[in-house]
Design a protein around this nucleic acid. Structure first.
Lengths: 140, 140
DNA sequence: GGTTCACATTGAAGTATGTCGATATGTTAT
DNA sequence: ATAACATATCGACATACTTCAATGTGAACC
């Protein structure tokens, strides 16, 4: 029974369905904001390259990409972990681990409501990573 | 002696400096074109997720990102491998291996001129990957 | 021919990563 | 309190990855 419609979580606790949940909560300390100009602008220095690589590493797993996509494509903008275990076909600990990595990378934010964990995407983070790749203008 | 200015490669063989060198040459068979709609559009299926993850995996290494950035930010739009070994501070086999991975992923194209190997970015590939992330519009 | 140079490939070592079963933590209901 | 449930953490295993020294491959030059 994936979607918790008749059981509860949809309307529990601080159910402010509109806003992006806990907001900044997900961005862990040490893992600072966004980072880095477009790749073609100037050669990456080592620290920036390591930060960027770390971010892409989190995106470099099919299960995590599917989780991220499931949350991002949800009509309400958020998704309960209880609805994510089944569609990706991995064990609960594995899914939990992946979701934690997505949160630690600043790609998702987690909000606990009762016994459930809700996740929402951080669009700015996705866009910032995309911008590093997308602005590849050739010098003509 | 990094930059081959007084030795030769800059003006050897098929030195068509303007165009993106070998063009399609770099995109290996099996590794098809671009793939995938924006993450938020619909949940990723397994094959697409694997393809995307593979692409991001290649970007998920600081040395490869710096190599890519070095080539992308070059004023001529291309770079000789002989100029890439030193700035990234890794051994020649390591750099060669990373460059091969970037080529296999369709992010760079390789063109041999005499004994030198020249690399150029494939902007469309970068942009396509960025687009998967960037178009994260919330459903309001 | 032989030598030198640029780059690719191979083999091996150390490290990191994905995965799951078992277990812990915390919340709700009885 | 006790039970049931959702999620997080731990420990362990298998696989993949980065890296380099040694060697192979081809091209240019003597």
């Amino acid at each position: 029974m994936p979607n918790p419609t008749n059981e509860g979580p949809t309307k529990i606790g601080p159910t402010r369905a509109g806003e992006p949940a806990g907001a900044v909560v997900g961005v862990e300390a040490g893992q600072s904001g966004l980072c880095c100009a477009p790749l073609a602008e100037s050669p990456l220095n080592i620290p920036d390259a390591e930060d960027l690589a770390q971010a892409f590493k989190v995106l470099a797993d099919p299960t995590r990409l599917r989780l991220l996509s499931l949350v991002a494509s949800s009509t309400t903008g958020e998704a309960c972990a209880c609805d994510l275990n089944e569609p990706v076909g991995k064990s609960q600990p594995t899914v939990s681990h992946h979701l934690s990595q997505l949160v630690e990378a600043g790609l998702l934010v987690r909000e606990k409501r009762g016994k459930w964990a809700w996740f929402a995407v951080v669009p700015e983070r996705l866009v910032a990573l995309g911008a590093v790749l997308a602005t590849t203008e050739q010098p003509s």
